[in-house]
Nucleic acid binder design. Structure first.
Length: 423
RNA sequence: AGAGAGGUGUCCGAGUGGUUGAAGGAGCACGCCUGGAAAGCGUGUGUACGGGUAACCGUACCGAGGGUUCGAAUCCCUUCCUCUCUACCA
């Protein structure tokens, strides 16, 4: 959530940023916010004065009672009652205005960082880096949804039976490959100084709200009605929420956490040819990086996280490219996002396997995540990135590394899989 | 799930409805003391919002939300959570 003080003082920049993100009616909503805020502040000022008055009256009555002047106290009570009832009206108005203001603020997405390219759709993202050769496959090469059947390593039919579409069963070397990737990613994160955590994979409403999934993505998360818990769409939610309502000591920054969790996404409204096989699932595995940093360091840290993800993809010997997302294609809460895409040779498609973002103070404002500088409390910056999401990595390993003898496992993974070929 | 106990500041822990934003500790910061340190002594040490250039002032906050009252951490209702015992169970 954007800070009201910032909006008040930087109205033009806010409208400009929102417009860059193709947010509809930016100017109108910002104006409405500023007006509502003004009424809220005026109301509070008047209310505070009145309450101060009422408090001193109450105190005076107390003193009279103590002094034994009962009758005088009784006389004062009538005036005090009157005053109190007047404060109620202002109190109600203040509450209403505060709620209105909050409802408006929650609607606003984060502002794009100044370096974010203009553009509305994925076509306008900018490819800032490419690495690795796109492999040329032999004539009868197959897409991964055929390969998994051929080698009997991932079973969608079985998942259908047990749960439904998008919940595959990993079997044998397929299951082993999953576990190898998870361990590999966690170990690599550990080497880069991240502390491993295992968070809950269901979160309460306050957590889903704090990282911005609610109210924006309500309906995209699975919901356990009876207990009002959401199944996490990413480990970002529980891990970042570890630090909700906290004031961090500056010397403890930056905070670096990593965690493996399954992720659950309803993916309502997305279907079609490009969601075949492992390309889009309702449940998938992911290792996530989360960092909490000062505003001065957050962009350097974003670079560091980008480097980390590059390192992973290079060790896995996968051709990849990095996209600097254009303003219109960024998520609601992000100020700057790099997407990593891996080439999946048989599908002849680039698949998104990681998204690394700086949220600046947007999440921190909802999280109430702060630190102290020179005695003043200030919001921190939050960042996160996938390192990595498994299914599409698996898809591209299967497709890119297929040989007549079987599927070759990247060297870096062999110590984790315990085999070098799926045949 | 049933019975009981409880939720107060960074932590521990008081709190009879009226200078309680909150005793007392501990911790932390600064100062004095010391050759240096410890101990000791002194001072300070919550958050949010509002007003003010600022010093500072005001208001709210004792799990959350309502209510009673001139006045609520304290009384009443609702709700969430934690702990103990019992039951059940990976």
């Amino acid at each position: 959530m954007l800070q009201i003080n910032y909006i008040r003082e930087n109205k033009a920049a806010v409208i400009e940023g929102l417009t860059k993100k193709y947010f509809a009616d930016a100017e109108q909503i910002v104006n409405e916010i500023i007006e509502t805020d003004q009424i809220r502040r005026d109301t509070q000022h008047n209310l505070d004065l009145m309450l101060a008055d009422a408090n001193s009256k109450a105190k005076a009555i107390g003193d009279l009672m103590k002094a034994g002047k009962k009758e005088e106290a009784e006389k004062e009570k009538a005036a005090a009652t009157e005053l109190r009832s007047k404060t109620k009206e202002l109190q109600d108005l203040h509450t209403i205005k505060e709620e209105e203001l909050n409802a408006l603020l929650v609607k606003l997405p984060n502002l794009p960082h100044h370096s974010v390219p203009a553009g509305r759709t994925a076509e306008e993202n900018i490819n800032i880096y490419s690495h690795g050769e796109v492999p040329t496959l032999h004539a009868d090469a197959q897409p991964h949804w055929e390969l998994i059947k051929k080698y009997d390593i991932i079973d969608f039919e079985l998942g259908n039976k047990i749960t439904g579409a998008g919940f595959p069963v990993y079997k044998g070397k397929g299951a082993r490959l999953q576990r190898a990737l998870i361990n590999f990613f966690l170990d690599e994160a550990g080497k880069s100084g991240y502390t491993e955590v295992q968070p809950p994979i269901m979160v309460n409403e306050a957590s889903a709200y704090a990282t911005g999934q609610l109210p924006d993505k309500d309906g995209q998360m699975y919901y356990a009605n009876e207990d009002k818990f959401y199944l996490i769409p990413t480990a970002e939610v529980p891990i970042t929420n570890i630090y909700r309502d906290m004031i961090i000591r500056e010397e403890d920054l930056p905070i670096k956490n990593t965690g493996y969790t399954p992720c659950f996404r309803r993916e309502a409204g997305s279907w079609g040819a490009d969601v075949r096989g492992l390309n889009r699932l309702h449940q998938f595995d992911k290792v996530e990086l989360v960092q909490i940093a000062t505003p001065e360091t957050s962009y350097a840290i974003l670079e560091e996280m980008k480097k980390h993800v590059q390192g992973l993809l290079e060790k896995l010997e996968l051709p990849y490219r990095i996209l600097h997302l254009c303003a219109g294609d960024m998520s609601f809460t992000s100020a700057l996002t790099f997407d990593f895409e891996v080439y999946s040779a048989a599908q002849k498609r680039w698949l998104e396997v990681s998204s690394v973002s700086n949220f600046e103070a947007y999440q921190a404002n909802r999280l109430k995540l702060r630190y102290k500088v020179d005695g003043k409390t200030q919001l921190l910056h939050t960042l996160n990135g996938s390192a990595l999401a498994l299914p599409r990595i698996v898809a591209s390993i299967l497709e890119n590394n297929q040989t007549p003898e079987g599927i070759r496992i990247p060297k870096a993974l062999q110590a984790y899989t315990g085999f070098d070929l799926i045949k």
